[in-house]
Design a protein around this nucleic acid. Sequence first.
DNA 1: GCCGTTTTCGGCCCGACTGTTTTCAGTCG
Length: 573
Amino acid sequence: MRITNQEIARIFQQIADLLEIQGENPFKVRSYRRSAESLRGLPEEASQLYARGELAQVPGIGASLAAKIEELLTTGRLEYYESLKAQVPAGLVEMLAIPDVGPKTVARLYAELGIETLEQLEEAAREHRIRPLKGMGPKSEENILRGIALYRRRQGRVPYGEAWPQAQALLEALQPQPAVHRISLAGSLRRARETIGDLDLLVATEAPRQVIEAFTALPPVREVLAAGDTKASVLLQSDLQADLRAVAPESFGAALQYFTGSQSHNIALRDLAHDQGLKINEYGVFRIDTEECIASATEEEVYAAVGLPWIPPVLREDRGEIQAAAQGRLPTLIERPDLRGDLHVHSHWSDGTASILEMARAAQAQGLEYLLLADHSRALSVAHGLDADRVRAQREEVAAVNAALPGFRVLHGIEVDILSDGSLDLPADLLAELDLVVASIHGGLRQSREQITRRTIAAIESGVVHIIAHPTGRLLGQREPFEIDLEAVWEAAVRHGVALEINAHPLRLDLTDLACRAAKERGVRLVISTDAHRPEEFAYLEYGVRVAQRGWLEAADVLNTRPADELLALLKP
DNA sequence: GCCGTTTTCGGCCCGACTGTTTTCAGTCG
């Protein structure tokens, strides 16, 4: 029996939805939401906290929720949850995902029209059976139908790497507008969450109407969902929603803080402000008694007004950053220029598109000093993986490239497959001849947690492997991570000095931000690599750095911030 | 349901937009 924090969080989230539909006390609902967030951000499994009797010390979890977690951990189910589910049809919860359809509406549709499913809701809207309800009208029916269509077209969120370029394009299109003083990303995009629900932009302007008109007329805009005096929402051709807020230049900092979130960070911050007799909204920080505004122009001022240093957006998840800021313990986050090399690069020797020289030149152009060539091994025949002979032949080309590219260094390595039985795809003596060896799992993904964990640890213990690549194998929106006991992997990695990769490919981002943070606390060595198959993909390093930052990593926590010789001495003593 | 050197009870972040109203409830972030 194993229940993860994510699963508990999901159940609490569901309970919150169910209670909300039932019209329960909103603060009780919020407690469940807050505890779910708290659980998602936990660097440790709840089962371990439970074993130490420390569950109720987690912020937002008191006696009642601790008891519910205990019930889940020990019995695998939660009676309270089961009984709620028995009272509320499952379809009602799904209906909450439709924009503009909230718990009150869902409850009334059920009580007054007997609507229990998305299909029934759609039918009722088509047949104009919703407009007779008080507070409803033709527009409501229209919105519901449009919302359902959108929900079906695009379920869920898109990867950061897909959203970011689109947001950047909007930003660049609006920047030259004369009415735009300043413009910035906000929301989860500015915090660099791994997936993004919609694009948030913030503009400082004295002519908001003008900016909003320009925004809603941009070419990528397919449909205008709402447009007022201070904000507009549009649907892009890509089906992503983009929201723009326009604020006066003097309150840009307060608005940027406000709209960057996260929601739970802001709630915690306002709580702190409240204790000091202050109130924070998107216009500034105000004294509650006199209404005097004491900060608004910059984010630094806003944080300073409540006695804190500026907190980087990537940390604003209410995962201890406010306490850390108050105690002067915020990390000095790693930045992209700190990286000196890329430790996972492919060439056309396997499934890359470019020559070793082309990849090396591209890496150098990105300001890197070295790369580790890590083409696939023979088991990955679809990728034209290398056998022993081709590895040796490749060595000569690596030497030639190094001779041709002064000031840059290509390290010769390989991405060797960890086979289903835990052995490596190439002989140990051959691997030992290489500069560094990256190992990873590409097959046998459906094996049990025990098997996959054992395979990974076998590679770590092999004595010839230096880096484990994409340790969980997940592909965002396409493939769940495979079952693996990361705690056990970290323990073995620390013992053998093997590094784990933060794979910067926008669909992988593997390890995750949370895993980075937990791994760091356990003393695990980490590297950031692109897994580049094409020269352009060195730009992915930026995404990897974002993950690392969200995991509270500093430059010293990441091995490839070091010069090549130092790195080699550490990994291959 | 959580939380507390002012509280174990009474608070709990805050405002904009929409669609429906004719002063507001619901939703959203």
